[in-house]
Simulated assay, not measured.
Amino acid sequence: MSRLKIASWNINSVRIRLPIIAQLVKDESPDIICLQETKAQNADFPLAAIQRLGYPHMILNGQRMHHGVAILSKQPLVEERRFDWQDNGEARHIGVRLPNGILLENVYVPAGGDIPDRTLNPKFGQKLDFVQRMTRWSESLRDPTIILGDFNIAPLECDVWSHKALLDVVSHTPIEVEALTGLMQSHDWVDVARTLVPAPQRLYTWWSYRNKDHTVNDRGRRLDHVWVSPAMKDTLAGFRVLEPARSWEKPSDHVPLIAEFAL
Score class of each variant (00 low, 15 high):
L18V: 08
R136D: 15
M134D: 04
D129C: 14
T145F: 11
E260F: 00
R3H: 14
E157H: 07
K5P: 12
D117A: 02
M134R: 07
V131M: 06
N88C: 11
V241E: 05
S247M: 14
D44N: 13
I11V: 01
S8W: 10
S208Y: 03
L120G: 07
Y209V: 00
K26Y: 15
R52W: 14
K212Q: 14
F124M: 03
S140N: 13
R15H: 10
S140I: 12
Q23F: 13
D31H: 07
L236M: 00
A199Y: 07
I50G: 04
F261C: 02
E260H: 04
P116Q: 02
I146V: 11
L223H: 06
D234Q: 09
R97Y: 14
G101R: 02
I258M: 07
L24C: 11
K250F: 15
K74Q: 11
I258V: 01
G54C: 08
L60H: 08
V190I: 12
D44Y: 12
Y204T: 00
R210H: 08
A48T: 13
I50S: 06
V226K: 03
R17S: 10
T38P: 05
L4Q: 01
V192C: 08
T181A: 14
G113V: 05
I11H: 02
S162W: 02
N106Q: 01
N61Q: 08
E79G: 14
M58L: 14
I71F: 14
R210K: 10
R52M: 15
M1H: 03
P110L: 04
C158L: 14
G182M: 10
L47D: 12
A49V: 13
D188G: 11
L24R: 05
S229R: 03
A259S: 06
P155L: 00
L72W: 05
T215Q: 15
G113I: 04
E90S: 08
A179Y: 04
W137T: 10
A199Q: 07
R52Y: 14
A199S: 09
R246T: 07
G101I: 06
K127Q: 02
A70R: 07
K127D: 03
E178W: 09
H66G: 15
P76L: 01
D168V: 09
A193T: 00
F45R: 03
L196A: 02
V131T: 04
L223W: 02
S140Y: 14
D44F: 14
H187Y: 12
R17T: 08
E80Q: 15
A179L: 07
R142E: 13
A237V: 08
M134G: 09
T235W: 10
D234I: 10
S252M: 09
P56S: 06
R221N: 06
R17G: 09
T145R: 02
N10Y: 00
K5I: 13
V69W: 04
Y108N: 01
L156T: 01
I21S: 04
Y204W: 06
V192A: 09
A22E: 11
L4G: 05
V96P: 08
D213F: 10
P46R: 09
L24H: 09
L156R: 02
Q185C: 11
H214R: 15
V96G: 00
R82T: 15
E28D: 13
G89K: 11
I16F: 15
Q63N: 04
N88K: 04
G182K: 09
H187P: 11
T195C: 00
P244N: 06
